[in-house]
């Protein structure tokens, strides 16, 4: 029973979405199912928040190694939550100037806006910027001419890397008065080989998605529920 009901719910929701795609009068049913998922996902935030609090409070109370980080996490969580919910420092919107809470959550000058602008944005950008460093160490390690395929990959990568900058134009200036040769070769690699490969992978993925979804819908694959039966 514990497994049958979730499978039944998954099957019904899936079928409704399929029918909604092909039958215009059933389109609103599909919207309804999607709305239900959003409601469920919103409730799940409580589960997630609860898990987060539990884990970090335990670390702090057990004085586990690095418990200070847990304290910082909980402090940041609490401050952001309170500031966001109570819209601290947010001015009322122009449409409803007499309603104190009518302003946007991220209204200019508000406390949440300040957190977003001066903490969240730089922290996020820093994490993303790490990619520049990781890509260099990964490229250094991965592009070794160990065999013919690796050699092709290496040469292609070098051409695309150079072709995507002014260096490509500068190096091929002599071949073409409009100095676009490197960009043209790069574009050709991307549009022909890369797109052909990407399309093949996408077709395979699409069929995999259809097959997996069908197995979930008919209940053949229940391993995501923790059961092989």
């Amino acid at each position: 029973m514990k497994r049958t009901i979730p499978v039944l719910i998954a099957s019904i929701a899936g079928l409704v979405l399929i029918i909604a795609h092909f039958v215009p009068p059933a389109q609103s049913w599909g919207d309804e199912v999607n709305t239900w998922f959003q409601i469920l996902a919103a409730f799940a935030f409580f589960l997630g928040g609860g898990s987060l609090l539990k884990m970090h409070l335990k670390r702090i109370s057990d004085q586990q190694e690095g418990w200070g980080f847990s304290a910082v996490t909980l402090l940041a969580f609490g401050i952001t939550l309170i500031v966001g919910i109570f819209k601290l420092g947010v001015l009322p919107s122009e449409t409803y100037p007499t309603k104190p809470w009518s302003g946007e959550y991220l209204g200019d000058g508000g406390a949440l806006w300040w957190i977003y602008q001066y903490l969240f944005t730089p922290l996020n950008a820093t994490m993303f910027a790490l990619l520049a460093f990781f890509i260099s160490s990964a490229a250094f390690r991965a592009f070794r001419a160990k065999n013919t395929e690796a050699m092709i990959l290496l040469v292609t990568a070098t051409i695309v890397l150079v072709g995507r900058t002014y260096a490509g134009a500068f190096l091929t200036e002599g071949f073409n008065p409009h100095w676009q040769l490197a960009a043209i070769i790069d574009e050709w690699f991307m549009s022909v080989f890369n797109t052909a490969g990407a399309r093949a992978i996408k077709i395979g993925i699409a069929l995999g998605v259809v097959s997996t979804s069908l197995k979930v819908l008919i209940g053949t694959d229940r391993s995501y529920l923790g059961s092989e039966e």
Partner: peptide
């Protein structure tokens, strides 16, 4: 990174 995934993963791992 999602609460629903956490609950599903817990069920799955427990069953395994």
């Amino acid at each position: 990174s999602r609460s629903l995934v956490m609950t599903t993963a817990r069920e799955t791992v427990q069953a395994s």
